[in-house]
């Protein structure tokens, strides 16, 4: 594999991980603009653990996921009191606070950045990305996933049907944060260097953008969004000066033509009809 292709693939795999970090809160109706902050916590915490204490990099990255999961449960207490646009603003503010924290934390290099000694290769990142996808896919197919959809769609009815709305919202936020922390650990250990500038609001917005354009109705939307928005700019490299203009036009076109995202429940049903000739009860109609 050429270095170029491997480089693109690593970014694609990391973007898939980050996509699910944003997808989980979105699946419960929360726009998390602070995902970069959680990625940063994961990157710094795992790098510090492997540099200072010799923790194996995979263990450090998984540990980072647990740390960000726990941190998110605490942060959820004030942040999830807000709704809609105010929730987005609260998470945005949280991301900004963390960014300035990283800038001023001398123990991990502050603005100068922080070198990471241990290394995680593409195989490890691919395994983790696959793991994140499969866990998300599985959870979506459980009652947990079904109730999450219910909570997203109608808090009041979910509550009357016995769903603990606050618990589901908190878990969605925290699972997303845990995945973000894992992604941060992988990122740091692959690129061997992290700095506060990696974890700004632009990062959060970019991930949210490709998840929304991929679609949040199904678990496949974020995957497709990540693939589309990692590979497309590369495919457009042929026309160097126009590539971002073309990219922007494609994004706007997607928003107009596919407001629910590239991949929705509708596509699932088409696939099901194509592959599912023997139709058991309950899945027969489309």
């Amino acid at each position: 594999m050429s270095g170029y292709i491997e480089g693109i693939l690593v970014i694609l795999l990391l973007n898939i991980v980050f996509a699910y970090a944003v997808y989980w809160p979105l699946a419960a109706g929360q726009l998390n603009l602070g995902v970069a902050g959680f990625v940063g916590i994961g990157a710094y915490a795992s790098a510090y653990a492997s540099n200072e204490y010799g923790v194996p990099p995979y263990l450090a990255s998984l540990g980072a996921a647990l740390v960000t999961f726990a941190a998110a449960i605490i942060i959820a207490v004030p942040v999830l009191r807000t709704r809609g646009i105010y929730l987005a603003l609260a998470t945005f503010a949280f991301g900004q606070v963390l960014h300035s924290l990283f800038l001023n934390l001398d123990v991990v290099g502050g603005a100068a950045g922080y070198p990471v000694n241990a290394y995680i290769g593409i195989g490890g990142i691919a395994t983790c990305a696959l793991g994140v996808f499969l866990v998300t896919l599985f959870l979506d197919r459980t009652r947990f996933g079904l109730n999450m959809v219910a909570v997203h769609h109608d808090n009041a009815v979910s509550d009357l049907f016995g769903i603990n709305v606050r618990l589901y919202q908190t878990l969605a936020f925290a699972i997303g944060a845990g995945i973000a922390g894992l992604g941060g650990g992988l990122y740091g250990h692959h690129f061997s260097y992290i700095e506060p500038q990696n974890y700004t609001i632009l990062f959060s917005i970019f991930v949210v953008l490709f998840v929304l354009l991929g679609g949040t109705q199904t678990v496949f939307g974020p995957l497709l969004g990540a693939i589309f928005f990692t590979l497309l700019p590369e495919a457009l490299r042929a026309s160097e000066e126009w590539r971002y203009a073309i990219f922007a036009v494609l994004i706007i076109g997607t928003m107009i033509l596919r407001p629910q995202g590239l991949f929705t429940v509708h596509e699932i049903r088409i696939f099901r009809r194509l592959f599912d000739r023997g139709t058991p009860p309950g899945r027969a109609h489309g």
């Binding site: 197919r141 459980t142 009652r143 947990f144 109730n147």
Partner: peptide, 11 residues
């Protein structure tokens, strides 16, 4: 019960 994949297992 919560982690039972009821949207995966038919019947």
């Amino acid at each position: 019960d919560i982690l039972y994949p009821l949207r995966l297992v038919r019947g």
